[in-house]
């Protein structure tokens, strides 16, 4: 460890104010990537959980391993894989599309677990009652079980939305000009000042996370009360 106590760092408010609009505008890219990624994950997760719950053994088993594999490997590598490998097979897209795909795929595995927990939380008696009423299995799942599973699913998805928002800064590594790329590569290396841009990014994330988490907690309490 190098301890050189020579440089006295000073927070430069003028500089911070100057770069804030640029960071906020880059935040729009971050938010867009997150929302698109989450839309993918919402469907991808449903697909995976239906695979897992399938009565066909090979399908449910491959569903299980797909989820395990995606969750057990770093998002960064999945991002690189999409960014560097897919073009070799002629699938060339923009960095932003690649990033959204990777985010969506990665969080599909988390969403699958969220759905699974929600579905498992529906009392077994509900399935049995549906069977006793001669509901076909598909009808049972979509009209009886899924609506009951949604209340616990909503706040849990909210938590993963916040997690994805924080993970979306990884898109900076494949040159998407989201907020961290702007802070480090556009502003930081140009002006040789990292203190303000990187600290501001941290503070922006902290504000968004704290507000979202407080909102999710309120929603959770609201849903609990409705039961």
């Amino acid at each position: 460890m190098n301890l050189s106590l020579a440089t006295g760092a000073q927070w430069d408010w003028a500089f911070a104010w100057e770069i804030l609009p640029q960071l906020l505008s880059a935040m729009r890219v971050t938010v867009t990537a997150t929302l698109l990624g989450m839309s993918l994950a919402v469907f991808g997760g449903l697909l995976l959980v239906m695979m897992r719950r399938s009565h066909i053994k090979t399908l449910s088993r491959s569903g299980y391993w797909t989820i395990e594999f995606i969750r057990g490997t770093p998002l960064l590598i999945q991002l690189y894989f999409f960014y560097y490998v897919l073009p070799e097979y002629g699938l060339q897209q923009s960095a932003m599309v690649t990033g959204v795909l990777a985010l969506g795929l990665h969080y599909s595995s988390y969403m699958a677990e969220v759905y699974r927990a929600g579905i498992d939380a529906v009392p077994k008696g509900q399935w049995e009652a549906a069977t006793a009423l001669n509901f076909p299995p598909k009808r049972t799942f979509f009209t009886l079980i899924l609506p009951q599973a949604i209340p616990p699913i909503v706040p849990a998805s909210g938590n993963y939305l916040v997690a994805m928002f924080k993970d979306s800064v990884l898109l900076s590594t494949i040159t998407v000009t989201e907020v961290l790329y702007t802070a480090r590569d556009d502003i930081g290396s140009d002006r040789f000042r990292y203190l303000e841009p990187l600290t501001l990014v941290g503070v922006l994330f902290l504000i968004v996370s704290l507000i979202s988490v407080a909102g999710i907690r309120r929603l959770e309490r609201h849903l609990e009360k409705k039961r």
Binding site: M1, N2, L3, S4, L5, A6, T7, G8, A9, K166, D167, V169, L170, S172, L180, R184, G188, Y194, L195, L198, T199, V201, G202, F205, L206, S209, L210, V213
Partner: peptide, 30 residues
């Protein structure tokens, strides 16, 4: 709240690029 509220990559950059401003240079591994 601070470490859950910001992303790991931002934290990493902050430790690696900002701390030297305060005179603390950490080896990458550390």
């Amino acid at each position: 709240e601070i470490f859950r509220g910001t992303s790991a990559l931002v934290q990493l950059f902050w430790f690696f690029f900002v701390l030297p401003f305060f005179g603390v240079s950490l080896e990458p591994m550390l």
